[in-house]
Design a protein around this nucleic acid. Structure first.
Lengths: 197, 197
DNA sequence: ACCTGAACACCGTTCAAGT
DNA sequence: ACCTGAACACCGTTCAAGT
């Protein structure tokens, strides 16, 4: 029991009718476009219409609106995580950490709906934070550990907690977001026992 | 031109029919209660019904839903700002700053809808951030300046920027929010030129 | 002046009928 | 198996009629 019953988007590739897969791809593509312009609350009829299918087909693939949102942002998260490995090799641990943070800020800032869904607390979006953590945590943990071993930041930081905090700050967008994240990273560098009381 | 035409909630107190004022108060009270349980997206009919008025009356007092939300949260902001003066006299500048931050975190964490409205970017809520800043900025600026003059934090921080960042972190709620805000305050204490490169 | 609530428009969701 | 779209329910918003 508790098997995933054909989760929308990913899953077993065989035994799926060609038109069904075409429709699903079309819906995802249409949703990404509509989300970018009208936000994640865009009318179902608009997305279905743009994909050239009936609303019934929409609901067949995505019974809950959150299913669609999750599927769309999963792809975006993949794109971000894939671009987060080279930095550790190019820069000093502390510098690599700071740079990855800024890159992450740009990503989150660009997707308005992502952080909204991420921080809504709505249990319908539960798989999204889970995927977010699963893909992004390892990247940050490596950077964190290297910087810690180099003595550049305080020890014992929780990568997940940091990730969530930064994504909150990043959702402000613009230079404010960049400055505040940089300030938070400076917080990591600060340790009470050194110069200031 | 560009005068405020009887903004809902505050304004000139004379020439208002007694039943109209009663209805407005009832609507605000009902809204606060409904917001607490069902969130700020609760149906208009539910709020109007609880206040014992027709939906037309609701729209007469609050033409836009955002007008109601703004009116409700204005009261909440007042309550928070009023409680933020004694700390500077009781503690050292740096300590007073850190404590006020934590108190502010508690406030924002308690009101789910506030930060959502605050950070939505929707121009309909524009008066809300404005009021938020107007009431809370002076408090933080004083704390900041004192801590800066005492040499406990870096100079040149923008109070508004900091306020917005902290309210974002605070909207996470719980101990995570407290820890991350404390980390940000440590960022203020950190200055590059001292011990670490 | 202000209030009421029927009426309208819009959107989410279902399901009988089709292929 | 999967798709379609008419039909239904619900909610925001207006406005003619009342006091």
């Amino acid at each position: 029991m508790s098997e995933k019953t054909s989760e929308a988007g990913e899953g077993t590739d065989r035994q799926i009718r060609a038109d069904a897969r075409r429709n699903l791809d079309g819906l995802l593509k249409a949703a990404m476009e509509v989300f970018a312009t009208s936000g994640v609350d865009a009318p179902v009829r608009e997305i279905a219409g743009r994909a050239g299918v009936g609303v019934g087909t929409f609901y067949r693939h995505f019974p809950q609106r959150s299913d669609l949102i999750v599927a769309v942002f999963r792809r975006e998260i993949d794109a971000c995580a894939d671009a987060a490995e080279a930095l550790a090799a190019q820069y000093s641990p502390g510098e690599a950490l700071a740079r990855w943070m800024q890159r992450f800020v740009d990503f989150v800032s660009a997707k308005r709906g992502l952080s909204a869904a991420l921080h809504s607390g709505d249990p319908a979006y539960e798989p999204l934070p889970a995927y977010f953590d699963q893909r992004l945590r390892p990247a940050l943990e490596n950077l964190l550990q290297a910087a810690e071993e180099a003595g550049e930041i305080r020890p014992g930081m929780d990568a997940i907690e940091l990730l969530h905090a930064v994504s909150r700050l990043a959702s402000a967008g613009g230079d404010d977001a960049r400055r505040m994240v940089a300030l938070l990273v400076d917080g990591l560098r600060y340790r009470p026992g050194n110069t200031q009381g």
